[in-house]
Design a protein around this nucleic acid. Sequence first.
DNA 1: CTACGAGTTGACCAAATGGTCAGGATGATC
DNA 2: GATCATCCTGACCATTTGGTCAACTCGTAG
Lengths: 224, 224
Amino acid sequence: MTDMTETETLQPARQGGESNGATRERNEREILEAAERVFAQYGYRGASVQAIAEEAGLPKSNVLYYMGNKRGLYVRLLERMMARWNALLDDISVEDDPADVLEAFIRSKMQLSRRHPEGSRLFAAEILGGAPFLQEYLRGELREWVQTRARVFEQWEERGLMDPVDPVWLIFLIWSATQHYADFEAQVLGITGKDEISDDDVERITQFLTQVILKGCGVQSRKD
Amino acid sequence: MTDMTETETLQPARQGGESNGATRERNEREILEAAERVFAQYGYRGASVQAIAEEAGLPKSNVLYYMGNKRGLYVRLLERMMARWNALLDDISVEDDPADVLEAFIRSKMQLSRRHPEGSRLFAAEILGGAPFLQEYLRGELREWVQTRARVFEQWEERGLMDPVDPVWLIFLIWSATQHYADFEAQVLGITGKDEISDDDVERITQFLTQVILKGCGVQSRKD
DNA sequence: CTACGAGTTGACCAAATGGTCAGGATGATC
DNA sequence: GATCATCCTGACCATTTGGTCAACTCGTAG
């Protein structure tokens, strides 16, 4: 009864061996998830390693054993979130259909916030605090990302496929609107009186945003 | 030379008398402003009384003398921000012109974020963290505010003055878009490469948002 | 001069902070 | 059975945290 197979199913964790690095992998995953929640809720300074450890169900020393220090853990989480974001929308081209691209953008951004609400809030908290760890990323990679898309939007404008609007502000509009439902979930729930945002809600919101933004920019589908 | 009139002009603050409560008023103002900055940047947990005191140029003891404790100071700031928000948009009626009302809403919300960026970020940080201090406000006052406006929007829809869109989500759209420029200022600056958002920028953004959102909702002005 | 209310502040406290470290546990390899 | 790499963790540390307090300064009112 008190053999190894039981400790196998009860989380605590095997020491030593376990052949490969399975223990490490599992524990790191557990810690990263816990940390994402805690950092998202309290911000970098407000989060404590102790709180993360408790959330992960491990001693503080163990968290530090795997992650080195608080700063490293935080940066690692930010990088993970940036990677998710980068994998979001492939390159687009002038030849693509504006309506399709914008809808896909809204939809995938919405799903990113939906699938990783804690990561989304973590990101938001970092930027709220002046982005001390993300300056480089914002002024580099992300800026490139935005500008290449903006150039395509401009060409669409020239070809009369959409109204002349500043494409960068359009991207911010989409960003903020989609981000809102993850970051300000507490506000949305409080005001609507719901106790969770359902998949149906997400779909309706996505369609609402798509409808309003496409129409608002006078986007003409190539198919028409 | 080392008489009183000098210490009068050098801020430190008069002790004793000063007749009325002018000292109190001035110091409280100073502390509130400093606290707003610090709380906005680090969140409730992450902000320290010491940091607030340094920002205000006072000893920690003095801050606590005026504000009692950290929690009270924080709540007071939230209440101040809520008051600003409540004073924002008067009651609206079905008889008003939808285009005027929406534009006024966007414009005044934008200016609120512009005039009080720290307060705006403070609010955002509070909600990001799950709104532990604001649950009541969100489920009460603010919910009422939103719902009375939503009802007017619905009546406009019935009268064919705008497209049938969920009015609550429309309000969130406007909220998020305007909030973004204060809360995510670091992101906006990083991506655009500017080093501040000018008054001209604000005006252009306001016009962009008005244009896109009004058109996107098919808002008909009564004047037409 | 005295008394008083308002303001100021360094010293102090228990608790929590991020982080280190030594010592131990465990299974795989030789 | 010895060695090794991995993992685990309680004890510990200097620093910072929010908050208290008593001693002080000062102008004014009696």
